[in-house]
Design a protein around this nucleic acid. Structure first.
Lengths: 177, 177, 177, 177
DNA sequence: AATGAATGAGCGTTCATTCAT
DNA sequence: GATGAATGAACGCTCATTCAT
């Protein structure tokens, strides 16, 4: 039965990402249970409080983001890798509301998952800069903030894409160098 | 008595901006009444539902933003006006614009208040472009989206400021002109 | 409307004494509301937690007991007054379960209400002893404990009465004095 | 395997006496399983409902009490035996007898276990009376009620002991004999 | 026979909304 | 017009009970 339990846990987490992504903290635990196709008791068996459920959801989301960033990091040209990852992280966010901001004081586990993402982005950025493909004066903080801002803003996909183009242009090194 | 009522309406709106700005949709109507110094019944007399109250709050905020943008539009240099307004709109609205996304389907009145803001931004953008101070290929849609994205993202104020600098750099015309 | 609110408060307290008296802590706040004929929200408006409601109920009960004890204290013969009050306090308890024991750590207000009762009993006891109608070596603590024990025990009323007779006999002064 | 099952049943009953003795009906079946070192399913295999478990616990306790009373009955002096048993029954059962009152309508099996105890007390009482060591007009009903009352009352152990002394004094034959 | 994951009714509590004063 | 007491639906969470393994 261990495998059933794990499967349920995963379905609950997936449902939670949907629900809290759509409705933020206003999403209800009951709704999560309904979408996961399990009883409310099962949700609470796996995550003892609503907050614990949200934290686990956020961590899962951040882990996915970190994975996205790292996966691309090994590919060839540094500038292209940086830009492609930037685009993917912006458009890949399945939740449109800022999941992370749901937590007042983020738990330590959440913080460390976020650091993981930031570090992955930082590595891509550093390579891009070494290759001369990204402005030398941009820091991880700003770049990661831009990714978060664009990933969480609502609006037409095409408009977002063009806005990303503009931002990536701003991140290119000045041609006079 | 009409003026009393109007005064109450204004105090309620001001309190609502505070409360919902701090706590989002989780802020309670009772808390709004308390801060406005009126009874809960008075709040509901002026705004028949919580949603109506939030909408009115958002509209008030958007109207203020439109006003800010228009006021700036008449001042001297076009590129500087555009950039200053961009900065003001990003930093002047922490967490308040997020209310718009809590509305689900925004009411028509909210939409039209938002269009007002977009148009004001559009005018500033057009002038900046005519003056050669802003990239000719940027459109209002992208610019307004960037403002919204940066206004709603959480994070250190200083980091946000530097991110805005990067974006405004990206919006500058290419030096090859 | 102040008087309506007070009336409701009283009906809630009376219902709570019934419900918690019958079912102890297992009695539900909803049941209290139902018996009081008010909505659940009204119960919580007057008593912000279930615990606060139980405390208020207990205090009311203790105040009634203290009143019973004091009222009798002014009447004529000291020994008779002591015994009559003892009987009244045992049989007058409308709640058959030990309301007081419902509280883990009793709140300060509850403690002081209990002290009030103990003091009233103590005064009656002292007078009885001065009049030579009650054993001189009995202390308030024991007497009050006997009252509590007999008030809370279940069983046939007639049997309780005879048990009280036996106890009061034990509290009489030894005839050899 | 039959002996394994019986061993489990006993461990569950012992755990139940602990848990419900401490927390009354608020004690949870899961906690009983945990302390018994078995799965929750095993508890419900042996006792189909929580109520059945509590009943079995109470019956076990009453049987022990009856045994105590009977064992003492055979020892030497009748008055001393009666008084010693009275004291033991009062102090040996803190909070556990209270479970009986949580049962609402006690099951027939519980009633008959209680009758067993009452009868054992009755026998001790009769012997004490025959020996002239206990008041002739006291009946089993009153005596058993006094034991129940004192066993269930909360309060300082020393105070309870002195209250028992007073009661036993009241049960002594009048010195005029 | 034993296990423990799953279930869902029920509880305490909150809060938008109504309405008698 | 203003007030605030009353209402009850909805939420987070617990726990007795069931059942697949």
């Amino acid at each position: 039965m261990r495998s059933d339990a794990r499967a349920n846990r995963d379905r609950v987490l997936a449902a939670a990402e949907e629900v809290f992504g759509e409705s933020g903290n206003a999403g209800s635990t009951e709704e999560v249970a309904r979408r996961a196709g399990v009883g409310i008791g099962t949700v609470f068996r796996h995550f003892p409080t609503k907050r614990a459920l949200i934290e686990a959801t956020v961590i899962r989301h951040l882990a996915l983001q970190a994975h996205t960033a790292r996966a691309r990091g090994e590919s060839g040209e540094a500038g292209a890798a940086f830009r492609a990852t930037f685009r993917e992280m912006v458009s890949g966010a399945p939740a449109k509301l800022a999941l992370v901001s749901l937590l007042g004081e983020p738990a330590a586990a959440v913080e460390s998952a976020a650091v993981e993402v930031r570090d992955a982005v930082g590595e891509l950025l550093a390579r891009g800069q070494q290759a001369g493909a990204v402005r030398a004066d941009a820091t991880v903080d700003e770049v990661y903030l831009l990714i978060r801002a664009l990933a969480n803003v609502g609006g037409d996909r095409a408009v977002v894409d063009r806005a990303v183009d503009l931002v990536l242009d701003g991140l290119s090194p000045p041609p006079s160098a």
